[in-house]
């Protein structure tokens, strides 16, 4: 068989095998590191523990501000962080709203502006929300305030993880 009848030349064969072996070795060294770096992005979000925040007797029809402490585990650092919820009674239901504006994450206040009674108001870009958390049209936020998961046991209100609502 002469040199010309080969489909793959000697040079090509060597190039392929050397590149293949080299690529395999490089991948072997790099892939654990890449997976290592990607780990936070591939972690499933952990469930938040329910925390007691208020008693049912405290609640009224008017949203009230309740601050509570949450234990946050941040890799090798565990700390208590403060969280806030606006809670009110809606008939027999209890509604707990997150104070984080859905526009850019500032903090909203119930009746934070005298011009807008019975609404949540964000001072950063004048975003407004109805009592239900529904965002007011023509203001920057594009979806309602987030809800807290609620559990009531023995007259005590426990709050859990955040529930995002879609814009209506």
């Amino acid at each position: 068989m002469s040199e010309k009848e080969h489909k793959v030349s000697r040079r090509q064969f060597l190039t392929y095998t050397l590149m293949g072996v080299g690529g395999f070795m490089v991948a072997g060294a790099i892939s654990p590191m890449v997976r290592f770096a990607l780990d936070p992005a591939l972690q499933a979000g952990g469930e938040t523990e329910f925390v007691s925040v208020a008693t049912v007797d405290d609640l009224t029809d008017e949203p009230q501000r309740f601050d509570f402490q949450l234990e946050i585990e941040d890799a090798w650092y565990t700390s208590e962080q403060s969280r806030t919820a606006w809670i009110y009674k809606d008939g027999n239901d209890i509604v707990a709203l997150s104070p984080v504006c859905t526009h850019l994450g500032c903090t909203v206040n119930w009746e934070g502006s005298e011009d807008h009674p019975n609404q949540f108001y964000c001072p950063c870009h004048f975003g407004r929300f109805e009592k239900s958390g529904q965002n007011v049209a023509q203001t920057p936020p594009t979806r309602p305030l987030d809800l807290y998961e609620i559990e009531v046991r023995d007259g005590v209100v426990y709050l859990g993880s955040i529930i995002q609502r879609r814009s209506v």
């Binding site: 654990p32 290592f36 780990d39 890799a75």
Partner: peptide, 23 residues
Amino acid sequence: IHAYESVYFLQNEVTHGVIVRGM
């Protein structure tokens, strides 16, 4: 305060941490 804990974390909690630190 945190050096040892962070090494412990990256070796035992992060995927492939034991390989990367081992290398």
